[in-house]
Nucleic acid binder design. Structure first.
Lengths: 340, 340
DNA sequence: GTGAAAGCGCTAACAA
DNA sequence: TTGTTAGCGCTTTCAC
């Protein structure tokens, strides 16, 4: 390392003062002679003194760092959330350490261990697809570390949670498809041990039920850990059914666009033969033909709010867990517009 | 914070030993009685002792943390690079703190200050579009902090650099377009004070020149900080020229796909009327019609290599700066396939 | 208004 | 083999 680092001790030596006086002068403490303060600050500036954060951390028993665990940083949604997190955290003088679980339970567990060992002041977590129990989170409770789950939350856990109205938006989206005349609506859904996936599927089912449509198992695809790998198979499976669906509620925009591509290749028309609905509202949805209807998630906002909640808990340790519900919205474009 | 934290002192008190003995027992030091070690380790496990990293940091004068500054985390390319960085860093027991410059010089400068103040062991930087001088990097040299620039490198700087063969791939891509019979090739290019943008444009120009084609200013669009905002205008401008281009070398895949969309809307055929070439090889390029030809960048690999170089410099401070050139490759799909 | 000393949690040189 | 001591850089009582 740079052994050149200027310390308070050095400044003290140079000015024939004690460390404490220098410290006080630098931290704008009251009881210090104006003259002395001026001198200290001048020298500090000349030497480009920067207080050693590590020493401060040790002294103050906090790191002003928050740890974030996401399934995958390359995922557009999480990347946007990260933006929101950074913004609020940096504004408040906090650093952000990011870890990826890569959808693996083991990695998630290890990330938690590592972040805690590194004394982060708080955690922001979106759980991996593999995570179907919460044992590895217990240590967070035991050590009483502020934590906020976001998006892929851990419902049963007595901590703060920030999430979107998955059930409602899924219900709304399904009713939109029904309103467009779709009667055989397929849905690609995530692992059912995850709260948000479960809710999404439930919203879909309830909308069908409410509208007197049957729930057909063949139309519901629950995929494993790497959905993007199987979109092609799913699509081919669906469109070659004896009675193929007339709408597909995809798991995300990229999957939706891939499905559209395959559907078109098979000579089917979108949305007339099959309507396609995405999820995430990525920019690209505007530029495909037909343009993609989708669900807009308040990604960046989710990051900012989760971070705000976390920071409030860090500053007030016995502040109650908060549940924040953010609203998504349906973005209707051409891929589901069958009636005028 | 959690005042419950178990310390070495606590364990020592419990066992009637000294802190040092406990420390030695825990760190697998040689000179310690097997019996003692066993006892210490048992208690440590029972109490779920975790060494305080901050104290270690202070003691060892390093944080095992590397700071990363990227223009934007939501950018797919940088998100992929981040993946590679995380992988190598975590493997080596390093944490990664991410900052975004949001393409702003001021933010970049502030990020550097903040990361250095937080005593990161090293830096990975991809410079912002706004950055047209290197004054704010001087402090890194002065403090002798290991740094590796990647992708958007800072050529003039006497530090390690990891980058791709922008000139060559751009040359190759342009020759590919020429080989497809294109004669009026437009290019959308980044700010010319950036090394990689300059090289890309130069490769394009040299390929034209070598093939006896004129360099037409009207076909070269150099954009500012937020290109995505103006893609539509650029495209309309180009296709309404008296002599519109018969190929466009876009700045990235998303821009390319937006351009294709607009071109198609204007009744022109791709690639026959206008060939379109992207940059970045995003998945989505496979699923648009026509499928998008593009340049594949070794994004994740760039992250892993940059991190490896950085770590080697951290461990050996007077290890010489390294320049690493990674190869991109041309991915030819339908959007540029005009001959058979 | 300033200095001396203790202490945050840990390691390591030196003693015993 | 174990304990004592010092010290990493800083803040903060407590004396003076």
């Amino acid at each position: 390392m740079k052994h050149t680092a200027v310390t308070i001790k050095e400044i003290a030596r140079l000015l024939g003062l004690s460390k404490s006086t220098v410290s006080r002068a630098l931290t704008e403490h009251a009881d210090v002679n104006d003259e002395t303060r001026r001198k200290v600050q001048t020298v500090a500036r000349q030497l480009q003194y920067e207080p050693n954060k590590i020493a401060l951390n040790l002294k103050q028993q906090c790191t002003r760092t928050i740890g974030v665990i996401v399934p995958e940083t390359a995922n557009v949604f999480f990347a946007k959330v990260m933006g929101g997190i950074q913004e609020v955290a940096n504004e408040a003088g906090y650093n952000v350490v990011v870890c990826q679980s890569n959808e693996s339970y083991a990695a998630e567990k290890e990330n938690i261990r590592s972040l805690i060992a590194n004394q982060v002041d708080g955690l922001l977590i979106s759980v991996s697809q593999e995570t179907d129990n919460t044992d590895h989170f217990d240590i967070i409770l035991k050590k009483n570390i502020p934590v906020v789950f976001f998006d892929r939350i851990c419902e049963a856990f007595p901590t703060s949670q920030v999430f979107t109205n998955n059930y409602e938006i899924s219900f709304e989206a399904t009713e939109h498809l029904i309103a467009q005349g779709c009667r055989r609506i397929a849905a690609i859904s995530g692992p059912q041990h995850l709260y948000h996936s479960r809710n999404r599927l439930q919203g879909y089912k309830d909308a069908l039920r409410k509208n007197g449509l049957p729930i057909i198992d063949n139309y519901i695809i629950t995929h494993g850990n790497h959905p993007e790998k199987n979109i092609e198979q799913y699509t081919k499976h669906l469109i070659t059914l004896a009675e193929p669906p007339d709408a597909i509620f995809a798991i995300n925009d990229i999957a939706a666009i891939e499905m559209m591509h395959i559907i078109k290749q098979h000579g089917l028309k979108i949305p007339v033969d099959i309507a396609v609905l995405g999820f995430n509202n990525e920019t690209i949805g505007n530029f495909v033909e037909p343009s993609l209807s989708t669900i807009h998630l308040p990604a960046s906002e989710m990051g900012t709010i989760a971070t705000q909640v976390l920071l409030s808990q860090i500053s007030d340790t016995n502040c109650k867990p908060q549940k924040k519900l953010l609203k998504s919205s349906l973005v209707v474009r051409e891929s589901t517009s069958r009636v005028r």
